[in-house]
Structure formats: structure tokens, C-alpha cells
């Protein structure tokens, strides 16, 4: 192969269009021709430099929140999104309509922290199982985060106008806050945050637990606090009520370790 033949294919070669078998002839020429080798190196560097130069920017946080909130609207009107109805982002600000206001009439209160008596044994088909399943799903999915830790204040304020309940992140012992994102548990908007706990991932979801039931036989009484503890698919999920907000904590740790984690749970009031 001559240089002029090689150079006809240099773009495709640098762009990795040929598989190993196909590029053997090209590589044979390259190993014997410093001039073409240099051209390949220049072109590869160019490509790499251009990519680095252009990929610095990521989606602004408020744009991301605006898009996600329009996608994750669960009310009927949002079931059919028409492009012409899209709120122009440039008009600035977070579209008010995108903030879902929850209005659930309470059937029974999941408030075993303050009123443990109301906790009811729920039949298998009740609302409790999906909450557990979805908490595990979100944990397992390890979805990209939208706001990064480790400062809990930064993460808390990011959620500020995105959820309809106050966000107070607990300080778990030995856990490092990685970040958070919007999520949903059943039809409810939830705040999802994730921690690193000595190399294990720990997920915490905060949501309005009004009306949700919890199986009474799974309730543990730990340090004056009632905690619902469920094990499923190798994961342990703990549900705690604090200040009117429900916390679902999920990780693939043992129930014993989960109890330790939850005991160190000290959310601000």
C-alpha cells in the first residue's frame, strides 16, 4: 500500500470505522511509514482536543429541573404533551404549573412516629408493597443525580421549590452525601438522595406518606422511634416518619446494619 492509498482512508481509520480485521492492511502500512503515522497521530489529537474543548458544558440545573418536572407531571393534563404547549424555557424561571401540588385525603396516616396506633396491618394488595418495590427500584436503578453533595444544605435548597414538603436531610453516621434528584413513588413526587456508606450505596427517598399503610408486623421500635423494616430481593428498606415527611431508606445491607444506620438518623426538626 502506498501513502496516497493510505491517506484516502485516513479519516475512516481515525474515526474507527474499520474493525480490527479490516484495518490490518492500513496498520501494516502505518507500522512501516512514520510520515502517515504522524498524520494519524495529528488527526487523532485534533479530534481529542476538539472533543475536550466542546464537552465542558452540561445542562444548567434549572433547565434540567424544568424538563424533568414537565416529564414527571402525573396529572391528567400532562399525559399528552404537545410541543406547542411547551413553556419556552427562555422566558425564564421554573414553570409554576410544573410544580405538582398534592392533595390526598388521608385514609390512614402513616405517622407511627407520633401516632403509632393508627398503623394498620395491610393486605398484600395494599399500597405498602409498591412503595417498597419502587424504593428498591430507585435504589437499584442508580439514576443520574441532578445535584451533587456532599453539602446537605446545597442539596436541600436545590429541592426547595421542586417538592411540596420540607427537605431536611438526616446526618447518617459514616455516610457521605453523593447527591440527589427528583423521583416519584407511586403517583407522588419524591426527593431522592444517595449516600456512600463505607463503599455501599444507600438511597433515601423523602415523600409525603399521607394515606400510606405499613404492615404492622414489620414495625420495630428503635430509640423511641417506630420504624417499618422490610427485606426484599436482598435489600433492606426502612420507613421512618419525621416531621410529616416519610423517609424510605434502602440499601443492600443486613437488617442489623440498617438498624444501626437508622439509629444514627438525626434529621433536624
Amino acid at each position: 500500500m502506498k501513502c496516497e492509498n493510505f491517506l484516502q482512508f485516513i479519516d475512516a481509520y481515525v474515526d474507527s470505522e474499520f474493525d480490527d480485521l479490516e484495518s490490518d492492511e492500513l496498520e501494516m502500512h502505518l507500522s512501516a511509514c512514520p510520515s502517515c503515522r504522524e498524520k494519524v497521530d495529528n488527526q487523532t489529537n485534533w479530534k481529542r482536543n476538539l472533543k475536550e474543548c466542546l464537552s465542558e458544558e452540561s445542562v444548567p440545573t434549572d433547565l434540567r429541573a424544568s424538563i424533568l418536572s414537565q416529564i414527571m407531571r402525573s396529572d391528567e393534563s400532562a399525559l399528552d404533551i404537545h410541543p406547542e404547549k411547551v413553556i419556552p424555557f427562555q422566558k425564564k424561571g421554573f414553570p409554576k404549573s410544573a410544580i405538582v401540588a398534592f392533595s390526598f385525603a388521608a385514609v390512614a396516616l402513616l405517622s407511627f412516629y407520633t401516632i403509632p396506633k393508627i398503623v394498620t396491618v395491610a393486605p398484600a394488595s395494599s399500597d405498602t408493597q409498591p412503595v417498597i418495590e419502587q424504593a428498591i427500584d430507585w435504589h437499584r436503578g442508580n439514576f443520574p443525580i441532578e445535584v451533587t453533595g456532599p453539602e446537605s444544605q446545597r442539596v436541600e435548597s436545590w429541592f426547595g421549590d421542586k417538592v411540596a414538603f420540607p427537605i431536611h436531610l438526616p446526618a447518617f453516621e459514616d455516610a457521605n452525601l453523593l447527591g440527589g434528584r427528583l423521583a416519584n413513588l407511586k403517583e407522588r413526587r419524591a426527593a431522592y438522595v444517595t449516600y456512600d456508606l463505607n463503599g455501599k450505596r444507600l438511597s433515601l427517598m423523602l415523600f409525603n406518606g399521607e394515606g400510606l399503610l405499613v404492615p404492622a408486623n414489620n414495625i420495630k421500635h428503635i430509640e423511641g422511634r417506630d420504624i417499618a423494616m422490610v427485606q426484599r430481593d436482598g435489600y433492606t428498606v426502612a420507613l421512618v416518619q419525621n416531621g410529616g415527611v416519610t423517609y424510605a431508606i434502602t440499601s443492600d445491607i443486613s437488617e442489623k446494619d440498617m438498624i444501626k444506620v437508622v439509629s444514627s438518623f438525626s434529621a433536624k426538626k
Binding site: 424538563i67 416529564i71 411547551v86
Partner: peptide, 24 residues
């Protein structure tokens, strides 16, 4: 999408609108 939209539209605001429209 956003990094590409920035260079397509040449403008941050338009890039944001383009990404939003495309995502929705």
C-alpha cells in the same frame, strides 16, 4: 444533547429551548 445544541444554535438560550423541545 446540550453540548451539541450550544454549537448548533450558537446561543445559550436557544440551546436550552432546543434541548427542552427535543426532550419533551
Amino acid at each position: 444533547l446540550y453540548a451539541t445544541a450550544l454549537r448548533l444554535t450558537k446561543n445559550k438560550g436557544n440551546a436550552e429551548d432546543l434541548v427542552q423541545e427535543a426532550m419533551l
